[in-house]
């Protein structure tokens, strides 16, 4: 394709008026309002369905909701999750659930915040909450274990609590 070049007038070809116009443009931006967000002090606003790091939650009674079904481990695209299944405590109120993870490791170096784990979980035990700056000084530190995940996740309001009377 042949691009038609517009015919420029002498004034335009002089180039200098445009230069001056540009100089005025940049100069006029100096006193304007700045858009910089002073990050660590000033956090960005997060909107409703924000997907941060995946974390484990407890139900209102404070029990671990995860039943170690390992579906999330299976679905996770970058294989960031590892579930070590174990048993619930003998005689506990939720002993009929039988299984719970004895450890639950999410490798935050690998997680891509896709939300598949949240989607697949039959127990609504894992959610992508609002922590977006996951950082650490070593790879080891970036392996989030069960305790840390539960602590970060906190309690999730849950009206159904399907294990309550089983």
């Amino acid at each position: 394709m042949l691009v038609q070049r517009p015919k420029l007038t002498f004034w335009e070809r002089l180039y200098l008026p445009q230069v001056l116009q540009g100089l005025w443009q940049t100069l006029s931006h100096i006193p304007r309002k700045k858009f910089t967000r002073q990050y660590p002090e000033e956090k960005p606003p997060l909107y409703g369905k924000y997907r941060g790091a995946p974390e484990l939650v407890r139900d209102p009674d404070g029990r671990v909701k995860c039943v170690a079904c390992q579906l999330c481990e299976f679905v996770c695209p970058p294989k960031a999750i590892r579930v070590v299944p174990g048993f619930r405590k003998e005689g506990a109120s939720d002993a009929s659930v039988e299984k719970e993870p004895s450890d639950f490791i999410i490798n935050m170096n690998r997680c891509i915040f896709c939300g598949f784990c949240e989607e697949v979980c039959p127990e609504e035990a894992i959610f992508l909450l609002r922590d977006f700056s996951v950082s650490g000084y070593s790879r080891e530190e970036m392996q989030f274990h069960k305790d840390k995940l539960l602590e970060l996740g906190g309690v999730r309001e849950d009206k159904i609590q399907k294990w309550k009377n089983k």
């Binding site: 100069l27 931006h29 304007r32 700045k34």
Partner: peptide
């Protein structure tokens, strides 16, 4: 500094 100001940064 000046470049930042011209681009509405600080």
């Amino acid at each position: 500094k000046v470049c930042a100001w011209m681009q509405d940064r600080v």
